[in-house]
Design a protein around this nucleic acid. Sequence first.
DNA 1: GCCAACGTTGGC
DNA 2: GCCAACGTTGGC
Length: 137
Amino acid sequence: MQYWLVKQEPGEYPWTRLVRENGTAWTGVRNYQARNYLRAMRKGDRVLFYHSGKERAVVGIARVRQEAYPDPTADSPDWIAVDLEPLRPLTQPVPLAQIKKDPVLRDMLLVRQARLSVMPVTPAQWRRILELGQTEL
DNA sequence: GCCAACGTTGGC
DNA sequence: GCCAACGTTGGC
């Protein structure tokens, strides 16, 4: 199993809505690097859900329900979507400021490549986020 | 509101 | 194919 992180503006699509709708099609990615990561997602992979903008924190854990398929919101077949479903919120959201200070987490792509919206997470980073988030699966 | 980082576009 | 100009994202 692989670990990932997706970034979203809570004003666009917050974690609470993913929970309320019990999952969603992750559409609208229009960046090749992010697209390639989306394409590499496998059913059952775990996904950290990060709120960008004013909030700037990892807030929940999701799972890949459906692997890559053509993004219905795109004009071109170059773009793909996956389906995500919520697993559980982090008991304690992990803010970006804390991530930047943590020796394990400061190397996350979230920090090193701020504009990327879909990215892989290492197992060590994954464990540390759950630890700081006081959450177990 | 500003700015750094980065991606895209278009002229050459 | 290069690069300047421009647009966007996201943190501060």
